[in-house]
């Protein structure tokens, strides 16, 4: 599916079977392609969640992603770190893109292939400044325990994501923002 089409449809109702409640929507579908008129499963397993941009929904999405990670040969620690990255990304959407406006939507895509896990976090709020993602690295997480006054209370979300994930890409186009995080599966 071309990226632009994903952008334009993600925050609408999905193209698969879905169950919807006020705050939490789940859409399940399998990705197919056709060869000589016959559908062939590509080995992708996909799920997407759409939540209201309310901080109270963060544990819901985190726990859901963690449980989905049981499909993957990840350790409990890695599953928790993947959950952490999604929670950080969704929190950033709510805090920074939407400025705590709980009437908006955040989308989370979970795509599992034999090679990698891809997590897409969508919003339609204020785009992230690209320099912030560039600047965020493991050095941002270093602390001097003797200098408590200068230990930041915030700003660890993006450095954590870049530390845990193998690839992090941010795109903003026509009012839709997407943070794509990839983690390779152990062969």
């Amino acid at each position: 599916m071309p990226q632009q089409r994903v952008f334009s449809t993600f925050l609408e109702n999905g193209n698969g079977q879905s169950t919807t409640c006020k705050q939490f929507s789940v859409c399940l579908y399998v990705c197919e392609h056709r060869e000589n008129g016959r559908a062939a499963i590509m080995g992708l397993r996909k799920m997407k969640f759409i939540i209201d941009s309310d901080l109270d929904n963060i544990p819901l999405i985190g726990i859901s992603i963690n449980k989905l990670c049981s499909l993957i040969p990840f350790s409990e620690r890695m599953a928790l770190q993947v959950e952490l990255c999604v929670v950080e990304a969704v929190t950033n959407c709510i805090k920074h893109a939407y400025k705590y406006d709980s009437a908006q939507k955040v989308g989370v895509g979970f795509t599992l292939s034999p090679e990698e896990l891809v997590l897409d976090i969508y919003d339609t709020g204020i785009p992230l400044e690209m320099e912030m993602l560039d600047r965020a690295d493991f050095k941002s997480l270093e602390v001097d325990p003797e200098d408590l006054e200068n230990i930041a209370e915030g700003g660890r979300g993006l450095p954590i994501i870049k530390e845990v994930m193998d690839s992090v890409v941010y795109e903003s186009e026509k009012g839709m923002n997407c943070l794509t995080m990839k983690k390779k599966l152990a062969s």
């Binding site: 959950e83 952490l84 929670v87 209370e153 700003g155 660890r156 979300g157």
Partner: peptide, 10 residues
């Protein structure tokens, strides 16, 4: 059973 950067910040 879970903490994120906001929790650590607090």
């Amino acid at each position: 059973d879970f903490i994120d950067s906001s929790g650590l910040g607090s």
